[in-house]
Design a protein around this nucleic acid. Sequence first.
DNA 1: CATGAATGAGAATTCATTCAT
DNA 2: AATGAATGAATTCTCATTCAT
Lengths: 192, 192, 192, 192
Amino acid sequence: MRMPSDKREAILRAALELMSQRTYTGTPMPLVAQRAAVGAGTIYRYFENKEALANAVFRQCEAELLKSLQNALRVTDSAREQFRSLWRGLWEFSRKNPYAFHFIELHHHQSYLDPESRALADSVIRFVEVFIERFQREGVLRSDPPVLLIALAYGAFVGLHKAEAERRLVLDEETIASSEAALWDLLRKPEE
Amino acid sequence: MRMPSDKREAILRAALELMSQRTYTGTPMPLVAQRAAVGAGTIYRYFENKEALANAVFRQCEAELLKSLQNALRVTDSAREQFRSLWRGLWEFSRKNPYAFHFIELHHHQSYLDPESRALADSVIRFVEVFIERFQREGVLRSDPPVLLIALAYGAFVGLHKAEAERRLVLDEETIASSEAALWDLLRKPEE
Amino acid sequence: MRMPSDKREAILRAALELMSQRTYTGTPMPLVAQRAAVGAGTIYRYFENKEALANAVFRQCEAELLKSLQNALRVTDSAREQFRSLWRGLWEFSRKNPYAFHFIELHHHQSYLDPESRALADSVIRFVEVFIERFQREGVLRSDPPVLLIALAYGAFVGLHKAEAERRLVLDEETIASSEAALWDLLRKPEE
Amino acid sequence: MRMPSDKREAILRAALELMSQRTYTGTPMPLVAQRAAVGAGTIYRYFENKEALANAVFRQCEAELLKSLQNALRVTDSAREQFRSLWRGLWEFSRKNPYAFHFIELHHHQSYLDPESRALADSVIRFVEVFIERFQREGVLRSDPPVLLIALAYGAFVGLHKAEAERRLVLDEETIASSEAALWDLLRKPEE
DNA sequence: CATGAATGAGAATTCATTCAT
DNA sequence: AATGAATGAATTCTCATTCAT
């Protein structure tokens, strides 16, 4: 079994780190090469061009995110517990992949994303939709369109990271926990 | 009465529209010129360089946002009514300035923003903080740090616009109204 | 009698001052306009274009120089006295027109000089040649080609100004006087 | 043995040839690239920017000039012989480097020269000063300030080249020899 | 496979010149 | 006559990509 070339990994990581801080167009390929400690030409052995590289990074981020959510969820749990799991999944993902949230946010819906990347992003949303739809049917969650609830909750999560990046907030355990509580109050069906 | 040079306005608008869709580095100045229907050199009669142009756009967006919030708020109202006002203020702002939210989100905390731009962004947050602190003291709002609540609520609002931009959601009156209700459940102090 | 427009004079002076310090291509027309305290368009009422302006400055310098030499020379004087006169003429010219030497040196033989300008430069040389030829015939001056002696002596004079501009030398009366003495030793026919 | 990149050499040579004829600002980088037969971007692999390129050319000229003078001088010779050596050194230098004199003259003391370039120019002058000071002490040379004598003699030499460039003079062996004789009469202490 | 020197198209910016006022 | 805002061609410089080694 051949190790999946660590040059490829190094390039992906370098691109992730740079592009999440400096945007796609703001990141020169030679800088990616330098950070990955490879020759400029080497990138093109692994990726057809800059666009393909950015898409690969994006897909890696989304795949990682999806995996984190899937690993976190226990289908047998209650709605409250499932939400807590999803929230912890998001949170752990963003701790292990500190640049990935920035990257996804910055690159979401940019023109260079190809259909496959968009499809993957959709599947992440779809995964959460399933959870929401189930508990809407059980009358536990607010009955708004699932995509609306996802937009609000995921947006709020992104908001936390933006605030951290701008040094207005420290994302510690306590902050994450009380955010989760607040978000649950947003999602659940209010008492009559 | 000074006619506020419509070239300057046209350039600002063109830059807003383009940079909110394509990022700062992804927007060539000649394209801005073309969209503004002015010569490429003309931009430099009004703005020292690209950076200064982006800062001017950013400040205009933030100032407009602050004004919308200030106009919306009635200090005599109840917490619930004040939140509704703020939410409507945000909403009306984003309707009148369809690119501004995207722009602010994309450019927030980017390296080319100068101190003045950052200060203006801070003052918007400070304005909302005052509202939150007041009603936290009155025991109406959740007692988390104000910046946390702002990060969540503003993040959620941005999430709505992202979802709309990605055509997953249509932001109509009803959507905005139910989002507002959901956000209020997030912000208010839960009953014991 | 109408004053010869002082705008024209102001433009010529501004161009002289700037172009003598920053070269022709290094001097933007708007800067000339600013220094002359006229509108940018005004320059083009007096001069067809930048090239014509530079030629006008050049010709003014050369004409001034020729006049200074002509005024200085007394044809009845001895060779020694005539040389002293020419030297003083040069010196007084460069005192009254502090930028002119630099300008002439910097622009001599540049491609934008037109035939008329070159002809004027030639006539300055021709004027000095006459002096040299006369005293060569009388056996007072070295019998090298007159242009050679001019090249050496005028070059030396320019050298003094360069040294002054580079702050290696202060061109005071004494320096000028001893330079003149030295130059005379260069020009005169050495004793057998 | 390192092959001293002939691209770098070609660029330096192209810049020297062009800038010595057309000034610094009058020489577009693409023209340099074309003359050097390299791509426009290639120049920037070897020189940080146009200013750095001009400084490199200037320093190469001055270094070459200094070397020519140093090689020419025999410290054991008489004053007369040493001057002849220096003069031949200058002359040979300008024959081998036909553009260098023009370049040095045109660029001397221009604002884009960096301190290192200026220091090198000073060291050339210092080298000749030592020669002059020595023979002033021995009573052979005129007792004016050394910089004054250098300004005159070097200026005269430059004058010869200007005259040649303007096609008023042909710099052949005979011309150089009689110029040298004339200059010696300028430099040496006149008999009482 | 890997490299990095080389490139030229395209980016930001400047500037000679025009022209409506 | 005088202006200075406006322009687009030209300038400096960058960077995605290629290709000889």
